[in-house]
Structures are given as structure tokens and as C-alpha cells.
Design a protein around this nucleic acid. Structure first.
Lengths: 543, 543
DNA sequence: CTGTGGGCGGCGAGCCGACAA
DNA sequence: TTGTCGGCTCGCCGCCCACAG
């Protein structure tokens, strides 16, 4: 059997509260179970599983005049839960077993603001790279994160930040043992009033919940508060009214106001977040009132120096691609005007939530976590790991979820690269420029580290740990290579990129006609497709 | 003029979605502007200001058969925003200027779980105090926070935790300069996609928002997620149904499920939170999936050692009192059966959100914050400070928001006290026991530190800072006594306890008949009243 | 006097086809 | 072929009173 896939960028109608999801005809026929067109209004229930194994049910109906395929009941819940908006994209994939899979991709939503310099609007020569880097060092998002007066530890994610996140996911009846310092038992947890309620009501459901599904929120109350308490979708085209809410009495005023702001950002490294996500990881004051709908994330699990003296930096380097319409993302190498754009505030991310959940967290949840445990590593394909941490694939295919291995130069370390699009005109030529720039920049950046990129295992062993071991040990924590392993393993499991058999959701993608308009070089197209879907996979917010 | 106050514990009807708030007749007549009873259905618009200066508007109507006072329009919004539930309490106060004030108090919601030992069910002799302390050291919430192998720094709130919270509240066009390490400008903030949207829509409203009104939330998406995205009120008496949501299609299932869990806890030290709030401040893995609706709080601003060698600990020690009905809380010393209960997971809290907001945060927002600034301190009344940090008032009146100054003994430092109620039978006698126990415990605990409690200024100068200055400086942060000052100042401003003129909301409470059933010793009653309202004030979640 | 519940109107969510790009 | 819109239904929120404790 051959996988059938389609990817559609959501329209305003798709995401409005008014209706459902309009499925392109060929996509529905290709991916969904066939309907009985002899009926007046043929319909069926679809069940699609997302990357986390969570199943979503939709009513698929073929109706209207002219007839069209729609997803109605269940779609709205999906949009709300995933906090989708127009320009986000959704992907359906039907595997050989007929099982339907589902993925989403966020629109980058980084408009070319006035405050964002558009370096890539210019042709960048080899010399201009230096100026780019220089400009970035002063204006890009990374200059916040780089403390020229400190050592590299400021840019490192403290390990306890990660363990803090891990600890959120404790289930009842479990104990946590984090590096010998803190012991948190269910008994303690139940001392919390919130937990008491939880325990009373839903203890047995706890194990069902992905830790990454939990939403952080403080209680809010001010009438003029800016944040939607709920997850209401943004109302496109409806401007906020009643700007004065000094005294506010009508609930709708607040709601309208809140709805007009859509903070659908920055969760656990799944979302493009630019500066703030990164800065949240380097510590203190970078968090922003607008960056509220997220946890202290795990983004930084790769932003970490290895050891105390190697001064090596692992950076998960990501470019965001604006959604292509329909199935055109399969033609990844063919950049068509208006079809594709690099938006690209680069940001650093950790392992996807799913990866941590499915690998690392479970290790913790099964009881005690010991500082060093490498068994999950053994399941990895070394070739895959090497490729994942090679920047070559990233550059050549612009695969967004590739990882760049970057050896930090001697002090002071150079700032990072910042890529972002300006306006979206002339995408065809601009994209090519970007590709070139990326390639050049990447070669520049990786020239001294590429030779070591294959040596990932030892490097990554201590990746999560932030160096300064004395300091952290003093704080009671020891390095745990936990998430490092899981991040790699998760990548390997979910999307095996650039192997001879590229897979998505475990479904091979290399053979036969994938989708409706595959390229004519099957293997390469499949790889590109795999990359695209790797992006889709990794970019999905873990909802 | 004489202040007119009433406090009512909310009923299920008050907090249901079905209707409004039923105002006790005498309360309405005492606190609200008089209505024209000659009208068919006399009504008026009330505007009440909460502790943060936020105004809430309610429609006050006198209708029904028999006639009764109701708050209708606006009440639901208030309940939702404040996330009130039945058993929570609301307080109205009309000052001499006729201005109406408003406060809330959360129900503790700590049932006596099986996992919570009920030490106070037993008579505690002087010798049993030791066993209590010992038991606490093994079973209470504090043993998580205490690392016997480390130095005292583990139990300290890192300063960057506070600055992190501070940084959330940056407004557009502002820059943050935190101790010379990080600079975050509006330009950077706008690089965030979320901020872009914000900027497009609501920039000019930003300054209106109290930083503490912002709700943290990650995006969530799993159908079986446990957290209500919105702020829907709990539905009393509606048990959660449909336990299996492996495949979930109906939105209502999720909503019902979510609504049945009410995580109305743990915000910024405003809410009772027990262990988790504290642990969140001491760092890593104590956070819990159920502790999601809150920020990294400022709770720890008093959980801090002073200086590097003094090994002194400031603990804001809090007992929660179950709400008394109507105005009976004014009779604070008269513990009537069923009227009052100590619920009391003790917890540590920082300055109220309001305090930080009104003092500390504004300092930051006005530009650059310098490490040492004592001007706000000068506005304090020294006597008040002393009393605020004296445990005597706490014990004698069981004032919940008093602060206990505790001098840590030589290593290993003793664990903290944990007070909590068992079931709520025999409240009258049990309460008296508790009072006695509290007094004894407090004397024990404060015997060596009370003599120094008046010397608050120098102690508190470095209170927020966690010691180990080299370590923190290495991380790029310097001690800021900011919140220390503001916490004291805030307390002094909002509730001046045990002065000759006790005030609430700045309104003197010592003269005349307050409420409907004041005690017959005006000054003492007023002080108790002041304490009660201090509790009400400080316990209000900063919504 | 006041807590609870039924009645009921308003509004938003969501399903439908019409219509046009 | 499919994006958007008006029409429509339905369920929930919230204002009203009745009734009972």
C-alpha cells in the first residue's frame, strides 16, 4: 500500500467558528475512506491520530451545491484545542493499513516588523556575512541572549529548568528523585489544594495525560486583562472595539478584546517564538507579558555546552517555512512564486514534546531516574543520528528541523545567525538568495565543527547539562542525558530523515507515488518530503 | 464617616452561571448607596475597586418577591475573572468618602486528605512539639524543600526567579535592565510573533494592564487534556462523566471534564498552595501538572536568607481560615461552632501581587532599576514593620497574614512548622487547641529571633537575594532589595495592622461601630478586624 | 430573609446551502 | 472547485420570579 497525504493551509473559513473544514476534493478522495456517493448526503466518521497518538474524530460529509467534502463535527474542537488559525496548515496521511494520521504546522506569523531588520533583502556576499553577523549581534534576537561580559553559561539552559518541566508531569502515586536532592512524593503533591481536587476526581486519568498537554495559567481577573482565559479563536477581520475599559462591566467587552489577541505562540519549543522562548531559557527577565501561554519550556535542551571545557554548543537551528497550499509542499525543491517563503526568526528548540514524553518522561515516571542511562540510545541508527546533526541536510534542503552542530569559537563566542524574511514580495528570487545565504552561513559556522558532527554520542551525553558542574551540583542537580537521548531517539522514531527509506509516522515514503504531484526523482523527493514532514512533525505544538 | 463593611461566603447560587449575587439585606443597606424604594424595581450601578485599584461594575437591583438585593450584571464577570467558587468569600467596604471597595478571600479547599497528617487533632504538649517538628520534618511539605546535604541556599528563592516575573510585565516601549546582564527592549519584544499581534492591536492598552493580571498558559490540544482552557466556573454537584476519552469528539466532554477540575490555586503567592508554591520557588522538580494556573511566583521573596552568613530565614507564615458566614468574621475572637475552622496547610508566600505591582514593579517600569533603593522604605512606619514581623500578633489573633520571623538554628536547620486541620468536627474545642498550639509553637520558634525582629531594615535589605553571591553574580544577577521593600511597604499601605489606627484600604477601622456585630472592645476588635481583613486582602488572588 | 430552581430571552457555536471567484 | 456568507437551530448564559426553608 502507498501512503496518501495531503496538506492544506487553513483558510479563514476553515478556522472560523462559523463552520467546518473544507477538504479539497482530490485530497479527500485520496486520503479518506471512500463515501457512498449514491446517498443524498454521504458521510462518515473519521478518526485520525496525531503525532502523540491522540485520536481526533471528525465527521466527514459530502454535501452542498456544488458538492464538496467537509469536516464538520469535531473539527472545531480540533481547531480550538490545537489553537489553529488561518495560515496554519493541517496534514492528513493515510498509511497502508488505512490508519489515518494527522499533523499540523503553524504559520510562522512573524511579519516583517519594522523592528526586525531584513538582512536577507540584500544580496549577501561573503564579506557581508560578517556585517550580517555584526548587525545581528546588535539587533537580532540573539543579542539579548548573549552576554558579552559573562562566560558562556548564560546562554546555557540550566539543567534544573528542564527538570522543573519534567517534574510537572508527575503522576499520582509516583515519586520523583532528581539527582539526589529533592524527593517529591504523591503525598506531598496531595498537600496541594489543587491536587486534592484532582485526586478526588481524576486520579486514574492522570496517566493518560501527556505532560505536554497541560496548560499553564495563572488565574486572571482584571477586567482589562489582556489574555483570553480560554482558547477562543481569533476573529479575523473583527477589530477590537471599546478601547476604554477602565470600568468594564460587560463580559463581552473583555472577551472581544481578548479574542482579538491571539497568543498562540511559544510552547515547549514547538512553536516559533523568536527571542522570548530562547531568553526564557537563559534565565531571568526575558519573559514578557505576552509570552504567557507556555511553560518554562524545554527549548534549551540542546542549547547547552558540553562539559566544562569543551565550549561546544549544540544549537537546534530552525527556519520556518510559510505554508504551501494543498499538496504543493511535496514539490519542495520547486519554489514557486507565492507558494513558499522563508519566514524565519531562527530559534532554538529542544526535543519535541512528544519525544520527551515518549522517551524521557516515561523513564522518570516509571520510578526513579538515575543520572546515566543509555539504553534508549542503543535503539538509534548511528547513521541517522549523524545526519540529523549534520548541517548539510539543513542547508541543501532547508529542512527546518535539522540540527546544526556548532562549535563555539574562542572567547568571545560569535553571535548566532538570524534569518528572517522581509515582506513577501519576490519570493522566488529571495528564496534562492536565502538558500545561498544559508548555505554560506552554515559552512561558515560549521567549518570547524563539521568534522566532529559524527561524534555525537559523547557530545550529546552531557548536552543537557549546562556546564559549571560544581555550581549545579551545589544546587543539588546532576547532569542527566535523559532528554538528549530522547530527543534523538524521538526524531529517529518519528521521522527518519534521509535514510534510504524515509518514513513519516512510521510509514515509508520512498516508494510509489506520494500524493498527487510528486517530483520525478523518487528518492530525493521522498527525502525532501520527509524533511517537510519532519518539519511538520516537529513543528506541531504538542497539544 | 464610618466604614461600612460586609463579608459573605458565596453560595452555590452566587457562583453558579444561573444567576447573580444575593446581597444580604443589612449588608446592602449598610454598604451600598440607598435605593429609591418607591420605584417598582429600584436599581443602580455600583462601582467597587479591588485591592489593585481595578474597578468592577455591578448592577445592584432590589426586586423579587419577597424583595431582595441582588447584584446581577457584572457579577458573573467578576466571578469568572476572579475564579470564585462557592465557599469563597467576598467583602465589600464603603469608606467615608462613599467609595466602595471590594475584596475576596478564597476558601482554603484543603480537605483533610488521608495523606495529610492531622497533627492538630491531638493535644500537643510542650514535648510533643518536638515530635510534631520531627514528624513534619519527615512528612510535611517542607521536607521537600530542605536539602540536608546542601547548604541553606536550596531553600532560598533565587533572585532571578523574581526578576523573571518582573520581566513579564514589560510594556511596549520600555527597556529592561536587570542587573547589568540582560537588556530587553520593545524592539526585541516585537520580534516575538505574539508580540507582533499584540502590537498591532493593543499597544496603547498595555500600560493599563497590571502585570499580575496576565494569565500564563501554554497552548493545549489533546482531547483528553485536563485543564480547562477557559475560566469556566466549576459546576457544583455535577460529577465528571464519561471517563473514557481516548477518542473524544464532543467538545462538551472535554469541557465538562475540565470544569469538574478546578485549579483555582496558586497564583503569585496570593493563593493557598501548600507545598508546590514553595517548591516552585526553590527550584526544580517540585512543580506539578496540577499546578499549572500560575506563574513562577514571587512567593519566595521572603523565603530568603539574609546575607551570606547570618543564616536567618524570613518566613511568611500563613494559616488559612475557613470562611465565616456573613459578617461573623468580625467576631474574630469568638470562635463559634461551625463558624470558623483552621484549615491550614501552612505555606510561604511573598508579597502580595499588588504590593509588588504597586511598588516594586513600577520602579522597574519607570526605567532602570538600580540595585539599592531605599526611598520607598522611608514611607513605612517603623512600628508597623516591627509588628508585622512579630509573631505575637499572629498567634494571639491567629491573623493569617502575619509574618513570622524565624532565626534558623545552627546546621542542620530545623524544618518548618506544618499546621493543618483534620476533619472539621468539634471546631470549637479544636480551634482553641490550635490557638494554644500555635502560640506555643510560635514562642518556641521565635524565642531566639523575636529580639531581632525589630531590626528588619538591614535584614530585609538583602532578603530577596539568596546568598551565594558569587554564584549568582556569575549568572549575571545582582541582589535587588526591590521586592523586599515593596512587600513591606505594600503591607503597610494596604493594611496597617495593630497600629492605633487600623486601616483597611486606607480607611480607618478603629472608631465607631464597624459592620453589624462588632465586639465590645473597639480597639481590640478593630485590630482583629484589621487582621481579618488583612487576611482577606493578602489572600486575594491577584486577578 | 435568602438559597434554589424554573421560565425564558439573547447570543454565539456550528450545520446547512447559496453564490461567486 | 472551494472560500465566504446568510439562514437556521440549539444550547448555554444570565435576568426574572416562585417557592421554600
Amino acid at each position: 500500500m502507498i501512503p496518501h497525504v495531503f496538506c492544506k493551509t487553513l483558510t479563514a473559513s476553515d478556522t472560523s467558528t462559523h463552520g467546518g473544514f473544507s477538504v479539497p476534493r482530490r485530497a479527500a478522495e485520496d486520503c479518506f475512506s471512500p463515501l457512498d456517493y449514491k446517498q443524498q448526503r454521504p458521510s462518515q466518521e473519521l478518526v485520525a491520530k496525531d503525532l502523540h497518538g491522540i485520536e481526533w474524530q471528525f465527521r466527514h460529509i459530502y454535501r452542498g451545491q456544488p458538492r464538496r467534502h467537509l469536516l464538520t463535527t469535531g473539527w472545531s474542537a480540533f481547531v480550538n484545542k490545537k489553537k489553529l488559525a488561518s495560515e496554519d496548515a493541517v496534514l492528513f496521511l493515510r498509511g497502508g493499513d488505512g490508519e489515518l494520521r494527522l499533523g499540523i504546522r503553524r504559520a510562522s506569523q512573524v511579519k516583517s516588523g519594522a523592528s526586525i531588520p531584513s538582512f536577507l533583502d540584500q544580496q549577501l556576499s561573503a564579506s557581508s556575512i560578517a556585517s550580517v553577523l555584526n548587525a545581528i549581534s546588535t539587533r537580532s534576537i540573539f543579542n539579548i541572549c548573549y552576554n558579552p561580559r559573562g562566560n558562556s553559561s548564560e546562554i546555557i539552559v540550566p539543567y534544573h529548568k528542564f527538570t522543573k518541566s519534567v517534574a510537572r508531569y508527575s503522576s499520582s502515586g509516583m515519586s520523583f528523585y532528581i539527582a539526589g536532592a529533592l524527593v517529591l512524593t504523591a503525598e506531598h503533591l496531595f498537600a496541594s489544594p489543587a491536587v486534592v481536587r484532582y485526586n478526588e476526581l481524576q486520579v486514574n486519568r492522570l496517566s493518560r495525560v501527556s505532560p505536554w498537554e497541560i496548560e499553564a495559567s495563572g488565574s486572571m481577573s482584571a477586567p482589562g486583562s489582556f489574555v483570553v482565559p480560554g482558547a477562543k479563536r481569533i476573529r479575523v477581520g473583527v477589530p477590537a472595539t471599546k478601547p476604554d475599559f477602565q470600568v468594564m462591566r460587560d463580559t463581552n467587552e473583555v472577551s472581544d478584546f481578548g479574542e482579538s489577541l491571539r497568543f498562540q505562540k511559544v510552547l515547549q519549543g514547538q512553536e516559533i517564538s523568536g527571542i522570548s522562548t530562547l531568553c526564557a531559557e537563559i534565565d531571568a527577565p526575558s519573559q514578557h507579558p505576552l509570552e504567557m501561554r507556555r511553560f518554562p519550556s524545554q527549548n534549551g535542551s540542546r542549547i547547552s555546552s558540553v562539559g566544562n571545557s569543551s565550549r561546544r554548543l549544540h544549537v537546534d537551528f530552525e527556519n520556518y517555512f510559510k505554508g504551501t497550499r494543498s499538496c504543493e509542499s511535496f514539490q519542495f525543491h520547486k519554489v514557486l512564486p507565492g507558494q513558499e517563503a522563508i519566514s524565519t526568526v531562527p530559534h532554538v528548540r529542544g526535543p519535541t514534546a512528544n519525544q520527551v514524553h515518549e522517551n524521557g518522561i516515561n523513564n522518570v515516571m516509571n520510578g526513579f531516574t538515575l543520572p546515566t542511562r543509555g539504553n534508549s540510545w542503543s535503539t538509534l541508527t548511528p547513521g541517522c543520528n549523524t545526519r540529523m546533526y549534520s548541517s548539510a541536510a539543513l542547508i541543501q534542503t532547508s529542512s527546518p528541523s535539522s540540527v546544526l552542530l556548532y562549535q563555539q569559537a574562542s572567547s568571545p563566542p560569535p553571535p548566532f545567525q538570524a534569518l528572517h524574511s522581509g515582506n513577501e514580495k519576490n519570493l522566488e528570487t529571495r528564496n534562492q538568495d536565502k538558500f545561498h545565504v544559508s548555505e554560506r552561513l552554515a559552512r561558515k559556522l560549521t567549518s570547524c565543527s563539521s568534522s566532529e558532527s559524527a561524534d555525537t554520542r559523547e557530545d550529546l551525553q552531557g548536552c543537557l547539562y549546562t556546564g559549571g558542574s560544581e555550581e549545579h551540583n551545589q544546587m543539588g542537580f546532576l547532569p542527566l542525558p535523559l532528554s538528549t537521548h530522547s530527543s534523538l531517539r524521538g526524531n529517529a522514531n518519528f521521522v527518519s530523515m534521509c535514510e534510504s527509506s524515509c518514513k513519516l509516522f512510521g510509514i515509508p515514503l520512498t516508494e510509489g507515488n506520494v500524493g498527487t504531484s510528486m517530483g520525478n526523482r523518487p528518492t530525493e523527493s521522498a527525502c525532501a518530503y520527509g524533511h517537510e514532514n519532519a518539519f511538520l512533525a516537529c513543528n506541531e505544538r504538542q497539544l
